[in-house]
């Protein structure tokens, strides 16, 4: 078994967290040549509810594709924090949206708070890029892929008209996280 690094993105359905997971997995697997698997759990509803997207990254082939001991977790809503911010290892990290998660779960991990949705809405100007702000922050927090690989993966995924917007969202998320680290 290889050294696994497990990341879980959680929030409400429709917030784009599955896309954030896919971009991270592409940065790791396609750009950096590591092994990566992205999977998700979802309910019957297309919007709302709690959803999660998991990415496992390793240097050798990955057997079990779901999280077993989470190294890093993101929770954008209270419901997601309650439902999915568990199984985080000691010395692991949890990043929450400071406006939306009022009661963060307790544990032997380090808790970080950033106003992710607010940042997307006010600083970038579009709430829809909150997932990319979150991705930038998670890349800064975990260092599991480089800033450049993450950026390249973001740009490869989004339509050309939205490249600048997403690039800014990614950078701002990354920088805001770096400031509090």
């Amino acid at each position: 078994m290889s050294q696994r690094y497990e990341i879980r993105f959680s929030g409400a359905g429709g917030q784009g967290l599955i896309t954030a997971g896919i971009i991270l997995a592409e940065a790791a697997a396609i750009i950096e040549g590591k092994h990566a698997v992205q999977s998700q759990s979802y309910g019957p509803e297309a919007r709302g509810g709690a959803s999660k997207s998991e990415v496992i990254i390793a240097d050798s082939p990955i057997d079990y594709p779901k999280a077993t001991q989470v190294n890093a977790c993101l929770a954008l809503t209270q419901e997601a924090a309650d439902k999915y911010a568990h199984g985080i290892i000691d010395q692991g990290v949890l990043l929450i949206d400071s406006d939306l998660v009022k009661n963060p779960p307790q544990g032997n991990f380090t808790l970080y708070r950033l106003p992710i949705i607010h940042t997307a809405k006010v600083e970038i100007g579009r709430e829809i890029v909150a997932n990319v702000v979150a991705l930038g922050a998670m890349v800064a927090l975990t260092g599991v892929v480089s800033f450049k690989s993450g950026e390249q993966a973001v740009l490869a995924r989004v339509p050309s008209a939205f490249k600048e917007l997403n690039q800014k969202a990614y950078r701002v998320g990354f920088e805001k996280m770096k400031e509090i680290l």
Partner: peptide, 9 residues
Amino acid sequence: EIVAHMREK
């Protein structure tokens, strides 16, 4: 559902 929906290289 897992092998069908998970993404791998």
